[in-house]
Design a protein around this nucleic acid. Structure first.
Lengths: 230, 230
DNA sequence: GCTCTGAATGCTGCATACAAAATAATTGCT
DNA sequence: AGCAATTATTTTGTATGCAGCATTCAGAGC
């Protein structure tokens, strides 16, 4: 029962068909990726027919996924006119980073007080991996591990709501950060800041950790800003 | 490119097109209300056929609304088994309040620095109204104004992302808070705390404001806890 | 030449129809 | 009677069809 399903005739050769068991999750992830990677640029109106045919699914589950992403803030719903990929202004991006900073600082403080040694060691392990990526110059893997580390620190706080909202904003920003290619010296700086973060975490020094996170997010804003202005 | 808008030039800027999003928003609000008011109790499995018939809509837009609410965290999706109203544990509630405290404190600090006098005056006005509700013993109106005030303070920070995530958690908590009926003395305490909050805001004293918000959220947790156990 | 009007087209929003999965009911066997 | 297996029924998941709104474009009127 491999290919017995929908055959959208006459569309791009590459089978972009979806393989998972639940279409809902699959469409969701696929759409998110398409938005993050810029395949669906901000401001783009999502044509249900076209996108549905492209993904090889009918409009019904696609629309459900669109509604879900709309609630996540990646997509904007316009009455009787469908959905467009949300376009973020510079201020909105700065505001998002501002909130993420607040959340991570709070998470960090909590983590210093409550996290297990094993949990902290796990973050350290991720960090070591990331160092490897840096030395290898593997930007994509670095990028992913970077996000993973920030999420891991938030996870140390053991607060589902905190992790939720952090993840939400992180997702909204992903496309933006995906663009930001900092130069080598800034990259080195970012790595150094990470090193300091882990150190403060291992020392369980909440104020120092919060301070570094604050710095780190400021830098993130600078990098993004450069990327936005070109 | 100037978009498609400038057609009939003499008419009001915003066409009063209330409700052509019709069903989607309507179902959304209705479902949220049903959940908040307990008509759909936590843990309840949502039968699409029944609920759809009850609301007088077909399953298609209902499912879209369910997906939306799932993304908001009010509903949980279980593969091939539909949707159930999310049931929050005591820890989850405490964690949500913890995050809300952090967000409101940050909002308060920002507001002290950047809010306009008019904006602060508006919060004061809401507060005065709320006092009226308190004196009249109008719990429902008080409850709604209470939420409005907290949202207004967050709004003063002029940060859309902040407002978004705050609103998100606020919504998740609504049903819980809706239950919590504190006794008269606690109610009086809450009113007093609000008074202090507004005062600190008018004085633009960020640390004091943050401290009071912290206290206030601790109290909120107490009240909720009583409600959960009582 | 320009604006306005109205038909044509495409797309969204909703409902219905159909397929697959899960739950409930029933039968058959020990 | 108890339990397993199987069938029936309910419910979810997906596709398709249809009506109405929006956008476009052609032509009439100025």
């Amino acid at each position: 029962m491999e290919e017995s399903r929908i055959r959208s005739a006459g569309l791009p050769e590459t089978p972009n068909r979806i393989e998972r068991h639940s279409l809902h999750d699959a469409i969701l992830t696929r759409l998110r990726d398409m938005i993050i990677e810029g395949e669906l640029a901000p401001g783009t109106r999502i044509n249900e027919g076209q996108v549905g045919a492209f993904l090889g699914v009918s409009r019904t589950p696609l629309r459900e996924a669109i509604k879900f992403l709309a609630s996540e803030g990646l997509i904007e719903l316009i009455p009787s006119r469908g959905a467009v990929v949300k376009k973020f202004t510079a201020k909105e991006v700065r505001d998002m980073i501002d909130v993420i900073r607040t959340l991570e600082q709070h998470a960090g403080r909590t983590a210093c007080a409550t996290a297990s040694d094993a949990g902290i060691a796990h973050v350290r392990a991720l960090h070591d991996q990331m160092i490897g990526c840096y030395q290898r110059g593997d930007r994509l893997a670095y990028y992913k591990l970077n996000q993973a580390i920030h999420s891991a620190i938030v996870a140390l706080a053991d607060n589902a709501a905190l992790a939720d909202v952090h993840q939400l904003l992180q997702t909204r920003l992903k496309r933006i950060r995906f663009i930001g290619h900092e130069g080598p010296q800034k990259w080195a700086g970012a790595v150094a800041e990470h090193e300091e973060m882990i150190a403060a975490l291992e020392a369980r020094d909440p104020d120092r950790l919060a301070a570094i996170i604050g710095e780190h997010m400021d830098q993130a804003w600078n990098r993004v800003q450069d990327g936005l202005e070109g």
